[in-house]
Structure formats: structure tokens, C-alpha cells
Write a protein that binds this DNA or RNA. Structure first.
Lengths: 229, 229
DNA sequence: TATAAAACATGACAATTGTCAGTTTTTTTA
DNA sequence: TAAAAAAACTGACAATTGTCATGTTTTATA
């Protein structure tokens, strides 16, 4: 039997926490839990979404194809986050693709439930608004980083981000392993440049690697580099 | 005597249009109309805002100081737009500075009025949410442009943006004149690089200039350049 | 309107980053 | 576990972009 949203811990971290008991029941009754394997697509840029996805487990990369054929990863969506909200609110096709970075479990909630609640429950709408306001600030920060920091700084920043948000395993390697190509697509550079800089960081003792796994060996030096020292 | 919000055309373009008559009256009674000369600061990054600003006339650049001391212009806010909303919603200091690009007239609305309406009027909240969702999409697009397009393409794009959004004067020059430095700060490049590329575009017949005024002489070529031909 | 200040412009050069063309290693799958 | 596929890596080189230094033009102001 499916688990009930009312008892879902994940909900504490997203806008669904502002829903009433009745609304939650509705969500719970209509939601569909889906599993995606690493690399599978939740949805693609340009698709019309008829609901939102609440991430229970795993990480999804949210990306946009650029004119030159490269994917730019705009953000990573993690446990607790609701994705697809933006498109549902403005009733437009989504501007981003969502692809599982590792195995995922997500709950799909039909848009009618969400839209309905937004018309009836101002607290819920306000909570959604707060989350979107937060996302917008983060997007502003990304814009500034993209244009004002070097590729080296952005890569260093990406690793600290991964450490702070997803932690490290018992051997000290980052728990969330992204391919070099994905990292390049996060910081907006060529895969080769990304690999080269990782090699350089390794030589300098800032990072350690084991296959595709990467660990931070000298956090302070990385931070100094980001800060421009 | 101050003009009434109820009759303000500007309101049609922003979230205030979802307000009830009573709410609008409240706004109207508590708002303060302010004028800013070109170059003056509406507010600075890190400030706490105790209200929002509704732009009646003129344009404001919304920027963020980066670690290397350069301002990155994240967006331009124009007639009809409400600025400072994000900060008021999340109850945080604002993450952006607002500086008048030309002479401005704005209405300052105390945050209590806004917050109050957001708790009581779901239509208003939803309308604010829609606007923020739109801003977020635009920010995503900027991120992709920043990381995947060349400086040359971004500058070309900036000029077409200025033409499409602010139009041209009778001589064919862009109605909104930004300094070369501002343009550089919009596209995220060095002022010298920006000037150089403008000169190049002029030589190639894509642009014409007269002092600091700039006009588009060959829109198609600019568009081709943006599209990567 | 003379003078100062700001903005615009250009050259020379160095640093950063991307592209292409491969090789090697790791991971996946039959 | 062998073969195939994908990912990681490296070198060489070119293109892009930033920096510094300096001169010119435009704009603002006393």
C-alpha cells in the first residue's frame, strides 16, 4: 500500500507543509509514486506538465539546451523539493528538462490539486511564493557567478556546494557523484576544460579522486581560490 | 494632489491589478510618490526594504556587486514593474541594488499593505506568484546565455533586447541609452571588450553610433550572429 | 564657455578557455 | 569475464577575452 502524504517527512521541506489536512488527503489520494533509474528523464524542456513532482529520494538535474547544443544545468533538485511548479503556475510548457542523476523516487501530484489549493488557501500560495522567491535569489547569484568568476573558481565552488549539500562518504569522497560532463554543464564550460582543472586541483592537493569519485582534500585552498586569493 | 492608484494605468501591468477596490484604496492612501534623477540610488544590496516600489516612469538597473568589485546588472525594471517584492516576501535584506538609469518616478508602497493583501487575497498572491515565476524563467534564460554564448553574441542580444523593449527614436537610435559600462555590466564582460565589440559592429555596419547613442543598422546580421551563423 | 571629469576608444600583450584529435581508463552489458 | 561502450584524460593549438596603459572625445559643471 502507498504511504500517506500526511506522514511523509519530505513534505516538511517544501510548500506542501502549508496545506490543510483535507488538502493533504486529496493530494495523498491522487498522487502516484514513480521510480526513475539514474539517467532516466522525468520530463523534457517544452513538455506540458500536468502536475508537479515531489522528490522523495535522489537528485534530478534541471537543465536547458542551449543554441550550441550543450545542456546547461541550471539547478539540482533534491529530496524534499517540488519540481515543475513554475510551469504549472504560469500554465506554460516547462522551460527545463529534468533527468535523474541517481536512482530516484518521486511523487507525481496532478496539477488540479495544486491549482485548486492555490485558489483557496492563501497560506499555501504564499508558501509556494516564498520558495519561488528563494529560487529566484539563487538564480541571481548564479548569474553573477557565471559572469564574474573564472571557470576555475566556479568549479571549486561547485565542489564545495556538493560537499555542503550532499556530504561525503566514509572515505571522504563526495556522496553525490556527478560525471565530469555534468560538472562542466553546471559551471558552464567545456568538458575538457573541466577535466583539466580537476587534474590541476588534484596535482595541487586540493582534490583527491578515485575513478569518477571526487573528494575535497584541502577545503581552505579551494575557498581561497573562490575568494580570489 | 496625488493621483489615485485606482486610475493608474501602470497598475495594469503588474500584480496590483489583482487587488480589490478596498485594497487599492489602502495602497493609494499610504503610497508615497518619489522622483529619482538619473544615477540616483533607490536602494542598495543588503538594505532592508520596508516596502515595494512601483515604477511609473523610467528604468532602473537591478544589480549585484561581485567579489571582484564589478557590478553585474541582473535585470532592468521598467514602467509597470514592481521592484523589491522578493525581499519583502522572504523578509530578508534585498539581494540587489536599484539605480535609476534615467529620470524616474516611482510609488513607494509600505510592505504592511502588501503583506496584508497576500494573507487575505489569494488572487493577489497568485498574481504575484505568476510574476515571480516569469522572472525566474527569465533568470534561467540569462544563466544559459551567460554560460553558453560568447560576449559578442550577448552584446548583440542586448541591443535587440533594448530595441524590442524600449524602441527607437525618430533618428533610429535606441530610446534607452545605456553607457558602454552598463552594457558591459549587463552582458558580464569588461568595459573595454564591450567598446571594442561595439566598434567592430559599427565597422561591419550592424550598428551606428552618435556620441553615446547607439542604433541598430542591420538587425538581421545581428540576429544571425546570435543564432551562431 | 573654459575647465574638469567622465565616458569612449585603441594598442599591446597575457591569460583563459574552447576545439579537435586522439589515447587510456573505467564502467556497462552481453 | 570478455567485449563494447562510455567516460576520463592529454596534447597541441587557436580563438576569445581581460588587463594595463594611454589618448581622445563627450559631457557636466563652475
Amino acid at each position: 500500500m502507498e504511504s500517506r502524504c500526511e506522514n511523509c517527512i519530505v513534505r516538511q521541506f517544501n510548500s506542501l507543509r502549508a496545506m490543510s489536512k483535507e488538502e493533504l488527503k486529496e493530494v495523498s489520494d491522487s498522487k502516484v509514486t514513480k521510480k526513475y533509474k539514474k539517467g532516466e528523464t522525468l520530463f523534457e524542456e517544452g513538455e506540458k506538465l500536468n502536475g508537479v513532482f515531489c522528490v522523495r529520494e535522489g537528485v534530478s538535474k534541471m537543465s536547458k539546451l542551449s543554441a550550441n547544443g550543450k545542456d546547461q544545468i541550471v539547478k539540482l533538485a533534491t529530496t524534499g523539493e517540488v519540481i515543475g511548479q513554475r510551469a504549472v503556475i504560469v500554465e506554460e510548457p516547462t522551460n527545463l528538462s529534468a533527468i535523474a542523476v541517481n536512482d530516484m523516487e518521486v511523487c507525481f501530484v496532478p496539477k488540479e490539486i495544486i491549482v485548486n489549493s492555490m485558489h483557496k488557501n492563501p497560506d499555501f500560495t504564499l508558501e509556494v511564493l516564498r520558495h519561488m522567491a528563494h529560487d529566484l535569489k539563487e538564480a541571481d547569484d548564479v548569474i553573477v557567478n557565471m559572469s564574474q568568476k573564472t571557470v576555475k573558481q566556479r568549479i571549486a565552488e561547485a565542489f564545495l556546494y556538493l560537499k555542503n549539500n550532499y556530504g561525503v562518504d566514509e572515505e571522504g569522497y563526495l556522496s553525490l557523484t556527478l560525471s565530469r560532463e555534468d560538472i562542466a554543464n553546471v559551471v558552464g564550460t567545456a568538458t575538457e576544460s573541466c577535466i583539466r582543472i580537476i587534474s590541476e586541483f588534484k596535482k595541487k592537493g586540493y582534490l583527491k579522486t578515485s575513478g569518477k569519485r571526487i573528494g575535497i582534500a584541502n577545503e581552505k585552498e579551494l575557498q581561497d581560490l573562490i575568494d580570489g586569493f
